[in-house]
Design a protein around this nucleic acid. Structure first.
Lengths: 209, 209
DNA sequence: GATCTTGCTGTACATTCGTTCAGAACCACC
DNA sequence: GGTGGTTCTGAACGAATGTACAGCAAGATC
């Protein structure tokens, strides 16, 4: 009789992708504490030893999962900006709408994000992942804000500092939405961000000059 | 010869206060993962069994530590507002300066805060502590923003929503400062918040009507 | 100074954790 | 159809986790 294969070999890249997906599933379900090697491997349907074979350790796997999530988020945000009308204001609005889309506001995704943040100080690989992705995030905002400044003719506008402010506003809303989704609706989130830009254009920009 | 007492009994309230302080020390040093029963007890100089005697479990202790920290923070912020000139704008400025004071921006304190946030979803007691303290935090901002709206004569201004926005901005700055203190200086943090109020007064408030 | 309440100790227990490693087994290749 | 290389398994390890509990002992009370 034919012996069924007990496991199937995969290309390292493919296997790693599966492991990362399993890691994200566990993080979403149980937070950082619930993402243990054993649970991740059970989710992926592999044995516990496999992680050491593909990664130097758990931290590296979690860091790669972090980068995967941030890559996906950045992609969505970039797409939203690219699909919007070319004016800076329209691009910002598209960015806000994308930020508060169901996929990004998914409480489970934010659950994973909180887990990442909570591990930034303890795992060096995760800190690097954060620094990298946060810099990328701000760079996107910086470019759009700089366009807005050019269009409006703001002299000496510090778009970098404004980008820090706007990203903080978005992160803060994102954070609170994750901790307690009933605090405000996605539409209100967009509204709050639009108000920030309104305010910037209404004179708030002068503080950044 | 005189036998030295092996331990000293304390009033429950006093002992609990000590345990909470020890918990905070551990959280600041090692994050949520490093705040184990054994480390907390070692820090407090008591045996591991004592926690079960005073609390239903670890979660309850951490939740009380959370409430202690938030109470301290609220106290500082209230003091700052009370000590400021009575105008809404001056009160907000005082609030911002207090928010970015060295004591509150202490990366170790934020380390503890991240640990709390990371546990909100897994521990019910900690979620309650968060909901309570966050509501209190927003209430402080709401009152000042309402004063500002009254002073400026903004009709139908939704101070609650604006308070959510401002608290998100503050939390986001606070968060990023904790994750990477080199991103911006405390002065820049105040600057970003002042710009938000400038913008609100410059026309951003209309979005909240 | 005996008694009693109760704050407190510290061992024990059952889990769970991340990592290791010798060897099994899959599958492409010759 | 063997062979080789590499993916993958799974038991084992030591360390660490939170909680339970039987009993010690401190210190107020009488």
């Amino acid at each position: 009789m034919t012996q069924e294969a007990r496991f199937s070999r995969l290309e390292p890249e493919l296997r790693k992708a599966h492991l990362i997906q399993a890691t994200l599933s566990c993080l979403k379900r149980h937070g950082f504490q619930g993402a243990s090697i054993r649970k991740i491997c059970a989710e992926a349907g592999v044995s516990v030893g496999l992680i050491s074979h593909h990664y130097s350790g758990k931290d590296e796997l979690v860091a790669e999962a972090y980068l995967t999530v941030t890559g996906r988020v950045m992609g969505l945000l970039r797409e939203a900006i690219a699909a919007a009308a070319p004016s800076p204001r329209a691009r910002l609005s598209a960015f806000f709408r994308a930020s508060f889309s169901a996929e990004l506001l998914d409480p489970q995704l934010l659950e994973a994000w909180l887990a990442f943040w909570g591990a930034v100080k303890t795992a060096e690989a995760i800190k690097r992942a954060h620094d990298h992705s946060y810099a990328e995030y701000r760079a996107i905002l910086l470019r759009v804000l700089q366009q807005l400044a050019d269009e409006q003719g703001w002299e000496g506008f510090d778009a970098g500092l404004a980008a820090i402010g706007l990203s903080a506003l978005l992160d803060g809303l994102w954070l609170e939405s994750g901790l307690n989704p009933s605090t405000f609706s996605p539409e209100q989130g967009v509204q709050i961000c639009e108000a920030w830009v309104d305010g910037l254009q209404g004179g708030g920009y002068r503080r950044f000059c």
